[in-house]
Design a protein around this nucleic acid. Structure first.
Lengths: 343, 343
DNA sequence: GTTAGCACTCTTTGCTAACGAGTGCTAAAT
DNA sequence: ATTTAGCACTCGTTAGCAAAGAGTGCTAAC
């Protein structure tokens, strides 16, 4: 439906606008070395492109900028995968130089590096713990009234929570209880823990321990908490450097969304494997108007662990960001697999 | 050095400017009900106040605004402690309604509420753990190569860290090691732990366990980590609503400081007990120009635990914020004391 | 000591003109 | 049948200017 020439003009428009943030006009286009026809010809082609909805004007006599539909087409059909240069490869690899034992650290560092390299805001949805399996439950009394429950999963995730110790419970009871819990629950996935406790373990506890219920509910609370994965951000203030966001209301909306993490989960949870690009209103979030979000998932084997993403203006360096995310998500998957290969 | 009339005029100027953010002129002052002299008289007095450095002009023929020196004087001498109204008291109390067992939660909630009530940004320096005493160390092997070390303090703080398990170490060794560590280190303050381990415990370990050193260093790392207390923020974007910060460079500087937590520790660690007000350049931080920081410490008994603070423009509602912080830090101290009264 | 009056300064606002970048359209050139 | 040159027109930006408004400092009268 588009002629080759329209295509090439369109591509130059998008590339130029991504670089300069200025509407691009027929005259400046005609001067580009790639383009050998006059500005009048370009004007005609641009009128067609506009009619087709790929580009638009900011006012009646302005140059053109890509529309959302235009960006979508650009991303789907015109993107040439960009090779990372040596420095970029080096920077990404720097995330993994230290031998790593903690997921959160790696994930956090990824967010930081990513935002520094792109000058956009990075968002990383930390590894899901819901399919982690319970490794150990421990209860450590702090004094006569309070104790702390700690659970450890097979991937090394630790959750803890303080709770009130019922008066009637002595240290023998606690030990008994912990033993029963570990005996029955080790190896059970976190998401089925709740069920299992009430269906199978509660009965058992009742036989051995008085007033087990208060304590049990505390432990169940501890387990429930990490149901929602953690979000990490990098370069939250990079948004302020983008010329399209020299508008206080827009910035406020975005930063508020980020601060309260409202809607971020929704944005991140596409759960398609691989790379996904959402442009402007495709994100279904008014704060994200004029913003694009590029997400990539990382995984161990077939199991998706989490998502990394870049949030920037619709006028984003799609090509570079996609390459970066691809490379990084790949690296993450490999490193994490190494880490857990021998569970 | 100031006459009563100068004082009263000064006070009205500051109060008015805090409310309106507009330079205040002699004519508008003369219309106030508190003031019964003509604008000309006020002009004379204002000229004196300006010469003394308490107020300044934004341009030759503008109204006056308080100078930093003026705010300082206002805070030191003119502040009438403001009673909180019922709604405010209620809001602060809402922090403590749920029976609380976790410091971090309370502290986080405090930051949130505080920022909502003031429309400024709140910063809370979490409880210091350095004088916490060790309650228990545990090591939980995850697989043949990695294990996780967990330490619990008497106040219920939990730190954990993964580390590499030396090949030569079997589960018996681990158990032995953990026993020795707990035996020797329980009750020792976190800050002296490092010393004690290398001076006393290492010798002991050498006698019983081969290749103990790698593991020991991992454990020491775990302990070192929480040396710096955590910072919590509330209402980071409230800054954007203040008219004096409708300037992108200023906002960028501030948000960057907040994001990277650069210098925040320095700002917060005055360590005087009670309330402290730092105005503009008194903070020794260029990002904090035109900002004031009001801090209040909270404590258990004589032991200072942490600090809560409000960051806002120099044109801040000092009176209300100080009352709020006073009330909240008091509340925090009381609640936390309750929580730990029987350790 | 206080105040009315006045000249002066500086910011803000609205208006106009000029300029530049860009467009759409038409007619000529290829 | 394309392509291009030319031209009238639109819109945003900038500069300049005048008028209004808020405020000041000073002087002279009360």
């Amino acid at each position: 439906m588009l002629t080759d020439r329209q295509l090439m003009i369109f591509q130059v428009i998008v590339d130029d606008f991504i670089q300069t943030a200025q509407p691009v006009g027929s005259r400046s286009l005609s001067k580009k070395s790639e383009i050998s026809f006059s500005s009048a010809t370009i004007r005609n082609e641009m009128a067609d492109l506009e009619e087709l909805g790929f580009i638009e004007k900011t006012h009646t006599s302005s140059g053109r900028i890509p529309s959302e539909k235009g960006y979508r087409y650009y991303v789907d059909h015109l993107l040439s995968p960009q090779r990372l240069n040596k420095q970029e490869v080096h920077q990404v690899k720097s995330i993994f130089v230290e031998r790593i034992y903690e997921l959160e650290k790696v994930v956090q560092k990824s967010a930081k590096i990513l935002s520094e390299m792109t000058n956009y805001t990075s968002i990383v949805l930390g590894p899901a713990v819901r399919d982690n399996k319970l490794k150990k439950i421990q209860i450590i009394p702090l004094n006569d009234h309070t104790a702390i429950a700690i659970i450890v999963t097979d991937s090394g995730h630790v959750e803890n929570r303080m709770f009130h110790l019922p008066e009637t419970m002595d240290s023998g009871d606690i030990e008994k209880m912990v033993n029963i819990l570990n005996d029955r629950l080790t190896g059970v996935a976190l998401e089925s823990l709740n069920n299992k406790i009430y269906k199978e373990v509660a009965v058992l506890l009742r036989q051995h321990i008085h007033h087990y219920d208060l304590m049990l509910s505390s432990i169940v609370d501890t387990i429930k908490m990490p149901a929602s994965e953690k979000l990490f951000f990098g370069g939250k203030t990079n948004i302020l450097s983008q010329p399209e966001f020299h508008d206080f209301d827009k910035v406020k909306g975005l930063l508020n969304m980020i601060e309260h993490e409202e809607g971020i989960y929704d944005l991140m949870r596409k759960n398609e494997a691989g790379i996904s690009v959402k442009i402007g209103r495709e994100n279904n979030n008014s704060a994200m108007d004029h913003c694009s979000l590029i997400t990539a998932s990382y995984s161990i084997g077939a199991e998706q662990l989490g998502t990394i993403a870049i949030l920037g203006p619709t006028r984003m360096e799609y090509s570079r960001v996609i390459s970066l995310l691809q490379y990084l998500s790949n690296g993450l998957s490999i490193e994490l697999s190494k880490l857990y290969q021998n569970e």
